[in-house]
Amino acid sequence: MLRSINTFNITRGIEVFTPYVILSIKNNFNYLCRKEIRYNKVVSLNTIVKDNMESMDFIPDTTNLEEVILKTITSNKLLFLLKLLDKEELELIKFLYLDDNGEKGYLSIYSKLKGKDYYYCTCLKKRALSKLSERKHWL
Results as ranks from 00 to 15, higher is better:
Asp86Ser: 03
Tyr20His: 06
Leu98Gly: 01
Leu98Pro: 00
Lys83Asp: 15
Asn28His: 06
Lys116Tyr: 08
Lys77Met: 13
Leu90Glu: 09
Asn9Trp: 00
Thr7Lys: 11
Ser24Val: 00
Phe17Thr: 02
Leu84Thr: 10
Ile109Gln: 10
Met56Ala: 10
Lys125His: 15
Ser111Tyr: 04
Ile14Phe: 13
Tyr120Asp: 08
Leu113Met: 11
Leu81Gln: 06
Asp61Pro: 00
Thr7Ile: 06
Tyr39Ala: 14
Ile48Asn: 09
Asp57Thr: 07
Thr63Val: 10
Thr63Trp: 04
Leu45Met: 09
Asn46Arg: 05
Ile109Lys: 14
Gly105Gln: 06
Leu2Cys: 08
Trp138Leu: 15
Lys83Met: 14
Tyr118Gly: 00
Val68Cys: 03
Lys41Pro: 02
Lys131Tyr: 10
Gly105Tyr: 06
Glu66Cys: 03
Leu82Glu: 11
Lys136Val: 15
Thr18Arg: 03
Leu113Trp: 00
Asp61Arg: 09
Leu78Tyr: 05
Asn6Glu: 14
Cys33Ser: 08
Lys41Gln: 10
Tyr118Val: 02
Ser24Pro: 01
Asn28Cys: 02
Leu85Ile: 04
Leu82His: 04
Ile93Ala: 07
Asp51Gln: 08
Ser133Thr: 13
Leu107Trp: 05
Ile93Glu: 09
Glu103His: 06
Ile25Trp: 05
Asn76Gln: 15
Lys41Leu: 12
Gly13Trp: 07
Glu36Asn: 08
Leu23Asn: 09
Leu79Cys: 08
Ile25Phe: 13
Leu82Gly: 03
Tyr31Asn: 08
Lys104Gly: 03
Asp117His: 01
Ile5Ser: 04
Lys71His: 14
Ile59Leu: 07
Arg3Met: 07
Lys126Asp: 11
Thr74Pro: 01
Leu98Cys: 05
Thr18Tyr: 02
Thr122Ala: 04
Arg135Val: 14
Pro60His: 06
Asp51Pro: 00
Ser111Gly: 04
Arg127Tyr: 03
Gly105Phe: 07
Asn27Pro: 00
Lys125Ser: 15
Val42Tyr: 05
Leu113Phe: 03
Leu129Arg: 10
Met53Lys: 15
Tyr119Phe: 06
Thr11Gly: 05
Phe80Tyr: 14
Asp117Thr: 01
Tyr118Ala: 01
Arg34Tyr: 04
Ile48Ser: 11
Glu15Lys: 12
Lys136Ile: 15
Ile69Phe: 13
Leu65Pro: 01
Val42Ala: 05
Pro19Met: 06
Leu82Met: 15
Leu78Trp: 06
Glu103Ser: 05
Ser130Gly: 00
Tyr120Pro: 01
Tyr106Gly: 02
Met56Ser: 12
Glu54Cys: 08
Met56Gly: 02
Lys87Trp: 03
Tyr110Glu: 02
Asn28Lys: 07
Arg12Ala: 05
Asp100His: 08
Asn76Tyr: 08
